[in-house]
Design a protein around this nucleic acid. Structure first.
Lengths: 253, 253
DNA sequence: CAGTGGTCTAGACCACTCC
DNA sequence: GAGTGGTCTAGACCACTGC
């Protein structure tokens, strides 16, 4: 009886804002867990209740709680291990760096980029940045980085993030190698996915001055928008790669 | 009792070739369906048995058959619709072309490439092609295509496929715009995924002669290996794009 | 050993599609 | 109305983990 009441309540609740289409219970449970993570109530590495307990808390069966957790695992939001339990996904600095870093060597193996130069600047946002972040974002941090791989300077990255989301970033210097793990640990902002656009460009004078490349050489320019669990654009990144020895690798399905 | 026998049988069967680790029943059911598709027993667009019937055929419960079908749907191998049924995924010529075609315009919308020139050649395989296809592949078809987008010739593709898999391809001319749908319909070869490597290159004399680009202009070169449901490399494709007006778009998760 | 997730079953009810 | 997939439940048993 209790469960039926919950279900009816959810129906009314969701219908009021979503054209009479109630969300399935398992999705509600999943959204609820995501909300807890976003709010900081559940932090990365923290163990979640068991399927049985979670179901009891939410007033659903163990099977429904299980389906919610399975979906969160598929999305990489939690990690589950038989006999151990379910924890909020922890993207370690090492593994995280490679999660969205697509450069691979000729054999397809991961490469280890070394941070060479970093500058952090606080400035007013550009119109394009406001278009992406929202019009209310007037100030941003710009993090410019230069990386070398196998001793050659071939990666230039420029990350832009809103000041409102990353308060007092300048006091955090030096920033760690892997920014996304840092965003999560220091600010509770978890990157869910990244949309990238790749174009071919010619190395300009600034590229030639900073990297092991000559003006006019072909390079790949990647423009990325990183989206967090709340579906906000939280970072815009523009990277320029010299792909003489490396390639951008991706699998399409 | 019957079901227990089936389960024990599967255990022994799989254990003999897989280090005592039996595959879950739902995976066995899924693999069985894939095998039927690969063998041509089930063709694209054909309706599968209902969950209940499939479970009965395989000696598993409806829930287990359901899980197998859900996984196949997630992998894009079948399409399911409430009230209608489950059919083997049909990649229509139109939709298929965009499945692995990542070029998007400035707004991120799909673009419609127009086939301008096509040549098909039968020749001996190169060492690199044998490395990808297997050493026994001595002959290949090379399909060279030139495409225009919005009236500008900016895409050059070269697809290489083994003669053994695509018998008498030369009699099929002219080939349709979307090769992967054609592979599936004419040869029963379904592309499951594609691994791509992107590099920046400078347009060479051949690019300048064939496309609306000048020698030395930066271009993106994409080297693709297409893998079918049997996990074979069935096509190697090298594409060169001019990205003045378009970008290669991808979402990382 | 207790507790966890992983698999599998059986059955209920609902929503959608098509005849 | 018959048949389909979608959701949800309840309960069984197994495999793995850690104390």
């Amino acid at each position: 009886m209790d469960k039926i009441l919950v279900q009816d309540f959810l129906y009314v609740y969701v219908a009021s804002m979503n054209e009479m289409t109630p969300l399935p219970l398992w999705q509600r449970v999943g959204e609820d867990i995501i909300a807890r993570i976003v709010s900081g109530d559940l932090k990365p590495g923290v163990m979640l209740p068991s399927e049985t307990d979670l179901g009891a808390e939410m007033g659903v069966s163990q099977g429904t709680a299980r389906r919610a957790l399975a979906e969160l695992e598929r999305r990489g939001i939690v990690e589950r291990r038989q006999g151990r339990g379910t924890v909020v996904a922890t993207t370690t600095p090492d593994s995280d760096h490679f999660h969205f870093f697509r450069l691979r060597d000729a054999k397809g193996s991961e490469v280890t980029p070394v941070l060479e130069v970093e500058t952090v600047e606080k400035r007013r946002s550009t119109a394009a940045e406001r278009e992406a972040f929202g019009e209310d974002v007037r100030q941003v941090y710009a993090i410019d980085r230069l990386r070398s791989i196998n001793g050659k300077r071939i990666v230039r990255e420029s990350s832009v993030i809103p000041v409102t989301l990353f308060a007092a970033l300048e006091t955090r210097a030096p920033l760690p190698n892997a920014l996304y793990a840092f965003y999560q640990q220091a600010y509770g902002i978890a990157i869910q996915r990244a949309d990238e656009r790749l174009r071919a460009v010619s190395a300009d004078a600034a590229d030639a001055a900073a990297m092991d490349v000559e003006t006019g050489d072909p390079m790949i320019e990647v423009t990325r928008r990183a989206i967090d669990l709340s579906e906000r654009v939280v970072e815009i990144r523009c990277s320029r790669y010299v792909t003489d020895d490396l390639a951008y690798a991706v699998t399409l399905r």
